[in-house]
């Protein structure tokens, strides 16, 4: 309840605001000039705002994930440079302080999926499918990083992004600007950490991959299969029960990742793949490996459709 209030309050005082865009699709604004670094630059109004939900990380050690539930994202592109403005509520300002080694800074990150028609695991990518990350921590220089799976985050050669953050009484507005590996990333995801809650590493909240809208404002062709949703959620739910999935995929069970918010954090493509080939990518921090369930193609569609209803 408190968090909802914080969000509402933030909405009221946020400097610039617009109606949320279509889910998982961010319209990229174009400017002729270099995209602005200043979060208050009027050019930002030319980029539609997307409201993005954030979810706790389900890898271990994940923890409660923090209080940042949503952020507003705008993306501007010009001359090969990308600028992303994120705004999110955060009641207290936590800036890196060399005199407070027990405290953590507020932080936010943008994750870029590699080009291709299959999105990597949203939590730090997968071996062989590296993600690029721009990380900003309050009071510290922004970093350009890459990762191929949980715990593999490492510095990446090349100029780090520029950052400019602005603090209001209720939250942060941050612009990250730089060049990405792929000139036009297929998808991006966001994360936010609240220093007051000891946010760092997995103690964060993370969005699902957001496709950057192609020409015509639609999901890029390469990602259409990833986004396709064809099954029957009701049948899927029955299957979920019959197959006893909950025995492992519940927070109390702890044997597999909790799927209560699977639909919020994942894309249908990922869910289909995970059901079909559970061993292909294992969410870090869980010791048992899910067996192959031997489901029919349609059954997999149904299960995926059901899971996509969870946590949306």
């Amino acid at each position: 309840m408190r968090r909802t209030l914080a969000w509402l309050l933030f909405l009221l005082v946020a400097p610039v605001w617009a109606t949320p865009g279509p889910d998982r699709l961010i319209q990229v604004g174009q400017t002729s000039a270099p995209p602005p670094l200043d979060p208050g630059d009027p050019a930002w109004t030319s980029a539609p705002a997307a409201t993005v939900r954030l979810y706790p990380q389900i890898t271990a050690p994940g923890g409660p994930g923090g209080s940042v539930l949503m952020l507003e994202a705008r993306v501007l592109r010009s001359g090969g440079r990308l600028a992303i403005r994120l705004a999110w509520p955060d009641a207290g300002e936590d800036v890196a302080d060399a005199r407070a080694t027990h405290r953590f800074a507020d932080a936010a990150a943008v994750e870029f999926a590699p080009a291709g028609d299959t999105l990597p695991y949203v939590g730090m990518g997968e071996p062989g499918r590296p993600v690029q990350v721009w990380l900003w921590r309050a009071g510290q220089p922004p970093e350009r990083l890459s990762a191929q799976g949980f715990g593999s985050l490492a510095g990446q050669a090349g100029a780090p992004p520029e950052a400019q953050a602005r603090r209001s009484a209720t939250g942060w507005t941050l612009v990250l600007r730089g060049k990405t590996d792929a000139p036009v990333p297929a998808a991006i995801a966001f994360a936010a950490w609240d220093g007051a809650e000891d946010g760092r590493a997995g103690r964060k909240r993370l969005s699902a991959w957001q496709a950057l809208a192609g020409p015509g404002g639609t999901i890029p062709a390469a990602l259409r299969e990833e986004a396709r949703l064809g099954g029957d959620p009701a049948r899927g739910e029955r299957l979920y029960t019959e197959r006893g999935c909950v025995a492992c995929h519940a927070p109390s069970a702890g044997l597999g990742p909790d799927l209560a918010q699977a639909g919020g954090i994942h894309w249908p493509g990922y869910l289909r793949r995970s059901i079909r080939e559970p061993a292909a990518f294992r969410v870090p921090g869980y010791t048992s490996i899910m067996p192959k369930l031997g489901l029919q193609r349609l059954e997999i569609e149904d299960l995926a459709a059901y899971l996509m209803t969870r946590g949306q």
């Binding site: 271990a60 050690p61 923890g63 027990h102 405290r103 715990g151 000891d198 870090p284 921090g285």
Partner: peptide, 15 residues
């Protein structure tokens, strides 16, 4: 006061 907490609770260590 205002301390940092490492873990929400016991968990299985990583390999």
């Amino acid at each position: 006061c205002g301390l940092a907490l490492a873990f929400g609770g016991p968990f299985t260590p990583l390999r």
